[in-house]
Design a protein around this nucleic acid. Structure first.
Lengths: 344, 344
DNA sequence: CTGAAAGCGCTTACAG
DNA sequence: CTGAAAGCGCTTACAG
């Protein structure tokens, strides 16, 4: 039997319960003013018939769908980011479905610009609001806002829309403090010039605060700029090793660049962590598997997604006012790649 | 201006174009029998007004939504699988949106059973068909089929539903052949007893075929059974090392177990690949980063998702008959963890 | 080739 | 507390 298009509608239920179908609607929507006895009868009829309301009809009548869009970068070249993105997806879906909403996916087609994912969502008119992963950029967010959609960003944004982001500043602060506490004084910072500008700035601020707390200031000569890739981490290390006084520790703003640093140090015969310490950021799945296992800053991606979903739905329901960014704590995971500074 | 609930409906467009709104409908649906001149006028009106049809209304009237569901395991503990799953998501979304469908996500809430993801989808009645990732199991697929939904499985299934799966048999065959060609004769196989039964069987069959081609047969004493985890890989290696004639190579049915094997061999001071070779399966992101980089069998997850999406939509459109499983080729990626057998 | 009618399955005021 | 009416924005036969 094909239950799917079984024409068990509100009418069927109403007949069986001996009421009008409007009353069935009331029961479904928990509207006040239904006699308890009637309600019971209707609920029984619904159960017996296996009635399931049509979302399409409901959406049409109410002018909302209880579906939220989720815009993500295309996964094709996600690489390491995959763990983060998938956690975000999982967290979002949890937050969304716990609130009896549903998640509609939208990522850009390869053949099109990144904005296509946003345009498709707008064109379809099927979602009530949209969650946007920060690396999708801000143009699309603007389009959504102009089109009248409530939006929540998962990650950092400079726009005036609600967002849920990790505490990059204190994550970097704690990592830097860790290296300082191990006695390191020449700590290289491997940052990136591409994308994620706000996160980079926050991390840098955390570094400077830790240095300041230790009575030090940032030595620009120890700052190298990569592009998040392993290769750029290698290049950064290569440049820094040429210094008269090479660093005794490297703090990289993501794990990939830390991996590049580790690779180059190994090739140069420099032992980590005995001679030099290395720390990363993001705590990606490979981190614990490297040789040595990588000390890194963990961000809670699933929690970010879930909080963002709850925030958005709160706004959709008129229960929350859009407010300041929600900042979730990050956490330093200490592993074998960091150790006390080599006594000179 | 809030474009979202702008009441630009078919009526508005019709007025502007000076036709009835049914004619607008015809134009939108590319129905035959509209005067070219009229069509042009309607299209112009649509563009000028920025008209976007309501998916909800259309779904209600046509009794289909052009939305497909995607059921995935919850990502909370996905770990390495995350790369595979995210690739699947990306591939699915590509295949789906290229066909002007949309992807609705459904993964089980933590608090509920795995079946909840399926039940929610069925209850909501909002999708036309469903894509199911194989690790979700077969119970849910049965529920969907009973409820009348066309289903396509991404991965292996014993059920009689369309599916798209990797060629595990030939992947394992090629990996085994690679080890044999390197001169290995005592090759341990580290398999798993949990889940993925069909994939395991296919991989085992591939191993046996490679052995047979080399005039050998499978030595059951060299088969160890883990549970996909790193720890179980370690345990497997530990057991095998105790043999009088320990293996000279390990072929593990996933990368995690291969990582466990690598870890244990290192602790025992056994050099990979000089003394012993190790190969994995799945080619997860950490594989190239290990010490030594891991030889592994790559499966094309994004392609699986995309093909599955196209298959399902073909069926929904009545253009494809559900047929035999689509089998996508796998590929051996040779890296530093495999080398010629140590001459005795 | 185009218009008028009926209906998809709900919700939302409006009476009573 | 419950029913009858109108409408959400489309599609689908049915006339002409």
């Amino acid at each position: 039997m094909n239950q799917k298009d079984s024409s068990i509608t509100m009418r069927t239920v109403a007949q069986r319960a001996g009421v009008s179908y409007q009353t069935v609607s009331r029961v479904i929507n928990d509207a006040a003013g239904v006699a308890p006895e009637t309600r019971t009868r209707v609920l029984a009829a619904m159960r017996e018939l296996g009635y399931r309301p049509s979302l399409a009809a409901r959406s049409l009548a109410r002018n909302r769908s209880e579906i939220v869009g989720l815009v993500l970068p295309s996964s094709v070249e996600a690489g390491f980011a995959s763990a983060h993105l998938l956690q975000v997806v999982g967290g979002v879906d949890r937050g969304v479905s716990d609130n009896d909403y549903t998640t509609l996916l939208s990522s850009p087609k390869e053949s099109e610009t990144e904005l296509s994912a946003f345009r498709r969502l707008i064109r379809q008119r099927t979602v009530d609001g949209v969650l946007v992963e920060a690396s999708m950029g801000e143009e699309g967010v603007k389009l959504l806002v102009e089109a009248g959609y409530p939006v929540t960003v998962i990650g950092h944004t400079a726009l005036d829309v609600p967002s849920v982001c990790p505490d990059d500043e204190s994550g970097a602060y704690v990592a830097m403090q860790h290296l300082l506490a191990l006695g390191h004084r020449r700590i290289a910072i491997v940052t990136s010039g591409e994308g994620q500008g706000l996160a980079v700035r926050a991390r840098m601020a955390g570094c400077e605060r830790a240095l300041a707390d230790a009575g030090l200031t940032l030595d620009q000569g120890l700052v190298a700029t990569g592009n998040w890739s392993i290769a750029s981490g290698r290049a950064a290390a290569e440049g820094l090793l040429d210094r008269e006084q090479p660093p005794t520790a490297y703090f990289c703003f993501n794990d990939s660049m830390a991996i590049g640093v580790l690779q180059l140090l190994r090739e140069r015969g420099i032992d980590v962590p005995r001679e030099v310490s290395v720390a990363g950021f993001d705590d990606t799945p490979p981190a614990p598997l490297l040789t040595p296992p990588l000390t890194s800053v963990r961000v809670f991606s699933a929690e970010q997604g879930e909080r963002a979903a709850r925030t958005l739905i709160g706004i959709l329901r008129g229960m929350t006012r859009p407010g300041a960014p929600v900042v979730l704590p990050s956490q330093l995971v200490v592993r074998g790649s960091t150790a006390p500074a080599h006594p000179r």
